[in-house]
Design a protein around this nucleic acid. Sequence first.
RNA 1: GCAGGCGUGGUGGAAUCGGUAGACACAGCGGACUUAAAAUCCGCCGGGCCCAGCCCAUGCGGGUUCGAGUCCCGCCGCCUGCACCA
Length: 1045
Amino acid sequence: MRGRHGGYDWRGTEARRAGNRGDLRPADSGLLRGRHVLRSDPGRADRQSGEPRHPRPGRAPQPHPVLGLRPVQQFRRSEHHNRGEQVSLGGFARRAVLHAGAERRSVLRDHPIRLCRAAGRRARLSGDGLCARPRARCPVAQRRAADPERGRPARDAAGHRGRHPDPRASAPYPGQPPVIQISPSGPLGGPDARGLRRMDRYDAAATEPKWQAEWDGADLFRATRDERPKYYVLEMFPYPSGRIHIGHVRNYTMGDVIARYKMSCGFSVLHPMGWDAFGMPAENAAMASGGHPKDWTYQNIDVMRGQMKPLGLSIDWSREFATCDPEYYGQQQALFLDMLEAGLVYRKPAVVNWDPVDMTVLANEQVIDGKGWRSGAEVERKELVQWAFAISSMAEDLLESLGRLDDWPEKVRLMQENWIGKSRGLEMTFKLTEPAHGHAGIDIYTTRPDTLRGASFIAIAPEHPLAKALAAEDADLAAFSTEVRKGGTTEEALEKAEKRGYDTGLTVDNPLGGTLPVWVANFVLMDYGTGAIFGCPAHDQRDLDFARKYGLPVIDTFVAMDDDSRVETEAFVPPKTEKVRWIDQPAGVEVATGQEAIDATIDWAEREGLGRGRTQFRLRDWGLSRQRYWGCPIPVVHCDACGVVPEKKENLPVRLPDDVTFDVPGNPLDRHPTWRDVACPSCGKPAKRETDTMDTFVDSSWYFARFTAPHAKTPTNLDDAAYWMNVDQYIGGVEHAILHLLYSRFFARAMVRTGHLPKGTEEPFDALFTQGMVTHPAYVTKGDKGQPVYHLPEEVDISAKTVKATGETIEIVPAIKMSKSKKNVVDPMDIIAQYGADTARWFVISDSPPERDFEWTPEGAEAVAKHLARVHRLASDILRADRPANDADKELEKQTARAIHEVTQGIEGFAFNKAVAKLYEFTNTLHRSDAGAEARRTAMKVLAQLMAPMVPHLAEEIWSMLGGEGFVVTAPWPVADPALLVDDTVTLPIQINGKRRSELVVAKDAPKSEVEALALADPAVVRALDGAQPKKLIVVPGRIVNVVV
RNA sequence: GCAGGCGUGGUGGAAUCGGUAGACACAGCGGACUUAAAAUCCGCCGGGCCCAGCCCAUGCGGGUUCGAGUCCCGCCGCCUGCACCA
């Protein structure tokens, strides 16, 4: 890989080479863009070298040697390119050939490159020595045409297509080289003392690889166990889908900000990276293109690693692994065997999506509208015997421990709490009026025993043993059961399905008198409770819909305090904490909340011997079997004689065979004879391997522990785990709020129990931060069938709201999650190629609060690049400044302290957008400050340090420019002097009747009486009072004054 | 369907404990510089009116309070998860 465009040379070899030559002075290190620089003073170069610094006078008007090139980046490194060489470009042009004359010369110094925004938002560059404007629209060309004396005559060569020489490419005076002049006032404070300005544009393309190479050379990011306190920062590891996504950039930048900040604060930081590499997409790719999942996956990993390295993340790459490495999944198999022995894994029937045409199990996402994604056949729910983790055995602990996760977002804890779903209810038996099929009664479980009076039917799941027994004799019921089994297994599908029932004709005795009919109903789940409920239509919408549909009675059991109306079409379901009036309540409750009535009824039922109170969890055991190839093989063997036999640990890893094909649906392991047929590890007779593999959630449930000893010959090394665990800061998307995080919490407990993690790591993530998604507007038109048709951003004219090619009017969908199908994905590599990693990093964490969705805008990226260039320019100016110390120094010192304080708070509080805003503000302050050179230099170094976690390369560059010691990454984080943070005076707003009308500047500790007196003397208050006394005067010291008139 | 979250100028957002709504930035507008543009620098920038002042404004409708973007109740819209996507 060469250069930094397209393929990025992350190893920074080019930079190292440049650095070794010693000619990469910061101020001279090239150009990010071509629109600037070079204060004209041709004499200067002459004085310095005896040679004109700028091209030979006679050459100036010659045609530009580089033709057909558009973006300017190609020139940045033109010194290193040779004639005829192909160079990859970022941005708008992809590839260009350098022509004769371009070699080993900074093209920029010979010929101006212009950036022209005349045609709208897109930057357009003219590198060919011609003006980007048509002649008719160029005022200079027009003027020259009118007054040939003054201007230079147009050259023939440039006459075609209305184009003409770039006015600025020609020498201003005959015999002078072409130069680009900047405004005399100069950027950020004027020309330097000599009236000269050097090329001090920040060149990300050269600087970033240079510092990455330096960091690598110093081995800065290798996590080491030493005397420093440790800090483990971890971002949820990526799935190797092929290319990195702007969301990855945001996620890893956030983690990097924390990691680098903590490093500056003196911690020994562990910041690892790996790949969640098993999963369906690899198999899908294999099916589509005929390759192998392994090749696809490892190639993707290589590409993505190559894309991540140039971001300059402070990752300890020596710890990298992929979950599909046999070294990883072999240890996972060892864990599985230990968990099996500890009784944490067992086999049980579980329901799957069955595609009856492809004869294969489908994932939920492969079921679309109840049909298989490939075959289109109606999916059926089918029971298979599967492996499951006994996560529900830890439900109580998992729930209770949530309360101690103080640094987790409240919403995540709440979601987990609801997911685990602890409830206390009543288990009771309804006696069948006539026993049937060996069943004397039906056990039900209800969380609302208080509504027993309102029961009007019993409903059992189609999978209920009684229902199955009845169906064996009743063809109609069997047909009904088959019918309602159609469709997917998701809770959403089940909930949304039409409520349907089948009257069995059986009845049970109602303990409150009379009988209740027994129905088989599709909305009753066999997995939850006992698979049977009593229906109370008045206070449950599903039951009500069901009752109305089948003409069952609706019996109100309570009414609102102030409203006697009875249930019609909407069930009355007030919060359990609301007081209601009960009607003929069995436990004798009259006025009480739902919860009080539930408790009273359970007590009553236990006294009466009707049933018993039981605590129930919604959380189900975690089915881990997958009928797929690309996953971790479950290390057991099925033997006719010995049953299920665990593989011997010394035989691990049970490796996936490589010789598989994906031309037939289903699991290739299942039809792989030599892999499948093995000798029983116990008796040695012929047996068969388990062909199911593990859910990929298993892979991601312990990788954080493996990172503490990634090369250990056991799953973990207790000593290393004891040092590095827990993860101090975990960062990832909210979409993982429930499953991944809950499974990881379970695994940590299981690993402690099986001796793979030390005690005290049961909650593996001390602090959690959930970041938002990355969104981008989508551009939609309607297709001929009314279906949405999406267009790429470059295909549309956003201001005119039309598709460029067809002129159709587009609808702009403001901000939706990026996805390929919506054609609104922005590739971060484009930005990195165009502006550098620092721009991408700064951009993704500025503006939007990290926890909220982040909207990508092209303007934003450009603005960031400008700002970073501005900071670099400011540093150059400050470096050269020689103003003596003066009165303004103190104020700058104060502002510096404030910036340190607020940026630190921003980083600590995960409010990177606020830290960035403060950095903008501080840059402005520093820019405007009249303080002396020394004070400004000190402030600039602090600015570099504060920016370092976000834009480490630029910060490193500025730090070294200003003579900072060592690396800015390892320099101790600045500390604000608390004395500088307090103000002597405070401005109090004065409100009149709650509306701000005036303000008051008082001493910080002014007594209340003084503030009152001053407020009452305020002209606005006097006018409002009009001689009367105020009704009320509220003074909140240091905050506000409110006068009520 | 259930659960959780979010909603503030043209745009992204700020507002620490109920106390000056719109920090900081983008876009836009004006100016300086320039041989035109670009770049850079400086300034303006929620809406309205009878404009030294006042009114309206934080998705919508109510409420609590001296005071509500913030707390409470009820809606609306969008987003995420729902156990085999990762």
